[in-house]
Each structure stands twice: as structure tokens, then as C-alpha cells.
Amino acid sequence: MIVAQQKPIKDIAQMINDCKKVLFVGCAGCVTVCLAGGEKETAVLASAMRIKRILENNPLEAITYTCTRQCDPEYIASLDNQVKDVDAIVSLACGVGVQYLAERFKDKWVVPALDTKFIGGSTVHGVWEEKCGLCGECILHRTGGICPIIRCSKSILNGPCGGSQYGKCEVNKDIDCAWQLIYDRMKALGKLDKLMEIQPPKDWSKSRDGGPRKAIREDVMIDE
């Protein structure tokens, strides 16, 4: 999932300081699962903003709505009637959702309430870790299911480097050395010979180095 975290309340308040009526839009996708921008978080933020603005003698009318997803046009279409008389829209989605709202509601001031952090998953309740580097060409079959692109601080393909000490990364002793994990797992699987294959330089044009990316499935496209 995409993992995001809420911005400080004062920063969000600053963005909508001159607005009298604001629509807070949550997203029932990834940000609900990482407890940053779901229905509950949207209600809490709206409530906090209403209280803050009353205390500042600048009352705010804050309404809320949570879309099934903000990253699909059909799910934000249901906002069309609600945005008509608002001065601003605060999106509690990832950066994708904010852009979808800004694109659909061209005459509205759309602002983000979250900082989009990374692609990852939860380890225990309340803790999320980065797991995928979105490199565009997965190599997990060569590395025992452990991604060196994002979990190795240097993203090296033929590790470990000299900074690996007692299974930890030199960047921070709380970070596991991804290449130590890869070695241990491949050893347990009896596949250490696969690590002897030297990996050539990665084609980063399939990642962000090739500019913004697009994925197309022509077989599912609907002709107009």
C-alpha cells in the first residue's frame, strides 16, 4: 500500500486560513489502512479544525466525505455537488488523490493534508516499513524475495558492501542489511549459487529516470 502520514495541524490550518467553508475528503484505499486519511481520520481532522477556528474567532464550516478511492475518476465524481459552495478542498489521500481532485475541480483550491511517504506494509499494528522501490523491473526472484533496491541503503545489486556490520547497515544500526538478509535466506533455501551470478547495471530508464511512467492494458480499454 501507499503509506502516508498527516501533516502538522498548524500547517494544514495555514493552507485554509482564509476559507470559510471547506470540504475534507478522505480516501478508503491505502491511507485508510495506514490510518492516515480514512473516514475516522477525516472526521478527527475536521473536528480539530472547527475547534481551532472557533478559538481564533474565525469559524470554519467543515464538511467531510470519504471516497472509495480518490485515484479513480468515477469515485470522485460523487463530490461534484458537494464542492459547489466550498472555498477549498482538503484531501486526505496520497499525492495521487490530491492531483485527481485538483484536476477535476479546476476552480477550487485543493490542498494536501498528508505527506505521502512510501510503498510498504505494516510490521506490527501502527508501524509501517518501506518495501518496494517502484523500480519498474522486479528482481525479487534473484534476491530471495528481499528487495535490495529499497531495503539496501545504496540500492546495490551485488552486495553486501563494506558497510555491513553484524547484519546491520552502516547508515543506521536499526536498519537491517538487506544483503545479509538476502544471503541468509538464499542459504536457507540452498540457492547460494544463484548469488554468484553477477548482476549487470540496472536499466533505470524503467524507473523514474525515464520520466513519468504510464501503464496501458489495451485489452481492457473501453472504446468511446
Binding site: 502538522p8 495541524i9 478527527v44 480539530a48 479544525m49 475547534i51 481551532k52 478559538l55
Partner: peptide, 8 residues
């Protein structure tokens, strides 16, 4: 913490 941040 929220209450402190919003001034209540």
C-alpha cells in the same frame, strides 16, 4: 496532543 496543538 491535538488539543494542545489547536489551542484548547
Amino acid at each position: 496532543k491535538i488539543l494542545d496543538e489547536i489551542g484548547l
